[in-house]
Amino acid sequence: MAATCYGHAVFFLLAQKHAGEVRAAAVPAVVTTGRNPAVIAADRATTVARLARVTERRCAEPCPSLRIERATLGARLDAIDVEATEAKRQEAAQDRADAERAAAVADPVTETLTTFGIQSRRVDLLAGLAFAAVLEAVACFCWVLALRPVESSKPNTGAAVTPVMNIQSPVVTEYRGYVPDASGPLPPPPQPVAAVTADHGDDVTRVMAEIAAGRLRPTVSEIRQYLGCSQSRAAAVRKQIGDSAQPALNQ
């Protein structure tokens, strides 16, 4: 796990470095033209020295050549000063571009954390290790979930038997049990449950007594709620109540 975390941390650091290089490439580059400021300063010093010598020179008669040389050196000195000013401006622009490029290379979140006195490289390393640990911990947790033992339930040795109804007879016989498989043990013989006809007769008597007392309405829903039976059984009871009440209405 430590080796994997180290590999992840290297990947995260390289990714941050690549992202910083992409951000730095977006900063416009400053192209400098002209001579080096050091060369300009040396040329200016030479021109000032020549102008000083010409200024101290004296002529008994008007010397046009001396005045021309003084004017030439003065103009050259002015040109050198302008060139030096332009070189300083370009140098300041280059410094600003370098600063912007350095700020773009650094991660924005890391730069925010450096205000607390933490070095940016240390913050990058700690962040990469933290991300790697989280990623590897999630992977280990998934492996734990995938490899944990599963409790096996007992296999079912038979299939449930549905109730069997004799269509010719009104008596419904219900059997409860399982049909054994070839490999399973033999279950006890099925025991028939009491016929439903008698139960229906008792239910009809009870329902009719409740209806006669006015405590129950002759509807399937209330009969089902009263008896606590299924919808089909309640419908059968309601039908028998109707059949029983029909002769009385005819009389």
Rank of each mutant, 00 (worst) to 15 (best):
G158R: 05
V179H: 05
S221R: 14
V171T: 07
S152T: 15
M165S: 13
K154I: 12
C229A: 07
N166H: 08
R217G: 01
P163N: 09
S232L: 12
A182G: 14
Y226F: 15
A213S: 12
V172D: 06
D203Y: 04
P163Y: 09
A213K: 10
S230Q: 06
P189T: 14
G184V: 04
T197G: 08
G228H: 11
R206G: 02
V161T: 09
V179E: 10
T162W: 11
S169P: 00
S152I: 15
S152C: 13
G184R: 02
M165A: 13
T157C: 11
Q225R: 15
T197H: 11
I223T: 00
E210K: 12
Y178T: 01
R217D: 05
P155A: 02
C229L: 04
I167R: 10
P163A: 06
A160H: 12
V164W: 13
R233V: 02
R206N: 07
Q168S: 09
Y226W: 08
V193M: 10
G228F: 11
Y226V: 04
P155Q: 03
S183L: 09
A236C: 04
M208H: 03
V172T: 13
R215E: 12
S169M: 10
A198N: 11
C229Y: 07
A195C: 09
P189L: 15
V164I: 15
P192N: 08
R217Q: 08
R217F: 01
G214K: 07
P187D: 09
Y178L: 06
A182Q: 09
A160F: 14
G184I: 03
D203V: 01
N156K: 14
D199W: 05
Y226G: 01
E210G: 01
A159I: 14
A198L: 11
A194D: 12
I211Y: 00
R217V: 07
L186V: 14
I167K: 09
G177E: 02
T205W: 02
R176F: 07
P188C: 01
Y175E: 04
P155L: 03
P190N: 03
